[in-house]
């Protein structure tokens, strides 16, 4: 019993040390002020003084919202349709949407660079489309699992049977019940888009993550401070999603007696 009792605490301690090592060091480093011992907020002040900071944050947000919009427009109706009327094509679609996971992003980048038309390649929203492809294995899964959990077909037929038009069925019946799955898939898209580096840099665009890398050339402390900032933000962001999904899961009954 004694060994069991310390197993969890000691594992957690090991994990905390493992995580703290680079994170703590980076946080300490980011407060350094030129010299090796003096600490200040200089690096963070420097960041805020950079016009590029807000500029590239804006670019990343814009492109991520573009990806979210495309997901909403293409993925959500498709998966809903698969569940409503095209059940037999679900295995095929599941297979197709998983394929981007098999191809390394580097390989897809070189393909996009050599195959997509010039007009598209000169528009930064090219990235939004590509982000949707990269996120597709995850967003498809999230939507598919979410919609499998509810008898979408039956309740839609019930609504139609009670005289609702398609528009009313979608607004008052389908949309509310699939909301959680949709929100989860949109958050996934947003998170992936905001952090994407490989494809963005290989297609020669500049977004927040690639800007951080270029900052490191001139101001390594600044780059480290930005890294601390972005990982902390990402953690808070995903933690919020965790809370959201927890609420929907806790409705399920657990066990008996």
């Amino acid at each position: 019993m004694k060994i069991r009792g310390i197993l969890l605490p000691s594992t957690l301690l090991a994990a905390i040390i493992f995580i703290t090592l680079p994170f703590g060091s980076a946080t300490e480093f980011s407060f350094r002020d030129g010299g090796k011992t003096k600490h200040s907020l200089a690096a963070y002040r420097w960041i805020l003084a950079q016009e590029d900071f807000l500029h590239y944050l804006g670019v990343s947000l814009r492109l991520a919202l573009g990806a979210v919009f495309i997901t909403l427009l293409i993925m959500v109706p498709t998966v809903a349709w698969l569940h409503l009327r095209a059940q037999k094509y679900r295995p095929l679609m599941e297979f197709l949407t998983l394929l981007p996971l098999v191809v390394p992003v580097v390989a897809l980048s070189i393909g996009a660079q050599s195959a997509l038309p010039e007009a598209l390649q000169s528009n930064e929203y090219e990235l939004s489309f590509m982000y949707v492809i990269l996120a597709m294995p995850y967003t498809y899964r999230a939507l598919d699992i979410g919609m499998s959990a509810i008898p979408l077909k039956t309740i839609t037929e019930a609504a139609r049977g009670l005289g609702a038009s398609w528009i009313k069925a979608i607004t008052f019946v389908i949309a509310p019940v699939i909301r959680n799955a949709v929100v989860a898939s949109l958050f996934l898209t947003l998170a992936l888009s905001l952090g994407e580096f490989t494809l963005t840099s290989l297609l020669h665009w500049d977004t927040f993550p690639t800007w951080v890398t270029s900052v490191s050339q001139q101001n390594i402390i600044g780059a480290i401070a930005l890294s601390v900032f972005s990982l902390a933000a990402a953690f808070l962001f995903l933690f919020a999603i965790g809370l959201l999904t927890m609420r929907s899961k806790s409705d399920l009954p657990e066990g008996q007696e």
Binding site: P22, A26, A191, P209, L226, S227, L231
Partner: peptide
């Protein structure tokens, strides 16, 4: 797992 990449590399420079 998903967004670590580049920030992690810089954090390691800060540590090691």
């Amino acid at each position: 797992a998903n967004t670590g990449g580049v920030p992690l590399a810089f954090m390691f420079v800060a540590a090691f």
